[in-house]
Simulated assay, not measured.
Amino acid sequence: MKSMRRLPDAELEVMQALWRCTPPASRMDVAAALTPDRPMAATTLLTVLTRLGEKGFLRTDKEGRRSLYTPLVSQADYLAAQSRTFLQKVCGGSLPAFAAALCDSGLTREELDQLRDLLERDAL
């Protein structure tokens, strides 16, 4: 898997909002999909969308005077790349160390059962 740069928090929030929208999405669509407790000024949102485009995370298409945004990176691909980077940097590439940290992180029995189910399903 190709390495993917980690997004700063504000950019990640905007990408998460864009992933919740039906593409292509307008700035207003993205603004509406942002979490209500963390609103973003329109000019700030436009700046972040521009940065994400420059970084190759989204495509901007003009439709008249408005811009429409389409993600070029899926949420699943971003999560997979960041998980691999985390595993390499923090756990030295050791999956057992990562799993042990997860188990010691205060996960509930239900979350551990879900994790076990995911691992068993993907092993088939």
Rank of each mutant, 00 (worst) to 15 (best):
T108I: 04
D104Y: 10
V14K: 06
C21S: 01
D122M: 09
L46T: 11
R51P: 07
D37V: 03
L115C: 12
G92I: 04
A10W: 04
T47C: 07
A33H: 10
A31W: 07
D61T: 08
L58P: 07
A97E: 09
W19C: 05
P8M: 05
R109N: 00
A32Q: 12
Q75M: 14
T108H: 01
T85M: 01
L45E: 08
M40V: 15
V48T: 10
D104V: 00
P24D: 04
C91T: 00
Q114L: 14
F57G: 00
T43K: 09
K55S: 05
E13G: 08
K55V: 06
T44E: 13
E54Q: 15
R5I: 03
L58N: 03
D122T: 03
F86R: 11
A17K: 01
V73H: 00
E54A: 15
D122A: 09
L107P: 02
S74G: 02
P39K: 05
P96T: 02
Q75T: 06
S83I: 01
T22C: 00
R5S: 09
D117H: 08
V73N: 00
E54L: 15
E63Y: 07
S26T: 07
S83W: 14
G56M: 07
S83R: 14
E63H: 10
A101R: 15
E11D: 15
L49K: 08
R66W: 06
V14E: 05
P24E: 06
A101L: 15
P23D: 05
L68C: 01
L12E: 14
A33L: 01
D113E: 15
F57V: 05
M1S: 09
F57M: 04
L18T: 07
R65F: 02
A101E: 14
A97H: 11
R121E: 11
T22G: 03
A32S: 11
T35R: 09
V73Y: 02
L7M: 05
R84E: 13
R38T: 09
V90G: 01
A80F: 10
R116Y: 13
K89I: 06
E11L: 13
R65T: 04
L34A: 11
M4I: 08
K55Q: 14
F57Y: 10
L87F: 04
Q82E: 08
D37Q: 11
Y78F: 15
A41N: 07
L68V: 04
G106I: 05
E111N: 10
R109P: 05
D77R: 15
R20S: 06
V48K: 07
L79K: 14
R51L: 10
C103W: 03
M40A: 14
G93A: 07
L34K: 10
K62H: 07
V90K: 10
R59I: 04
P36A: 13
P36R: 14
L102F: 10
G106F: 08
L118Y: 12
P23C: 08
L7W: 10
M15T: 03
P39R: 02
P39Y: 02
A41I: 02
F98R: 02
L12Q: 11
S94A: 05
L87Q: 11
P36Y: 06
G106P: 06
L49A: 04
E111F: 13
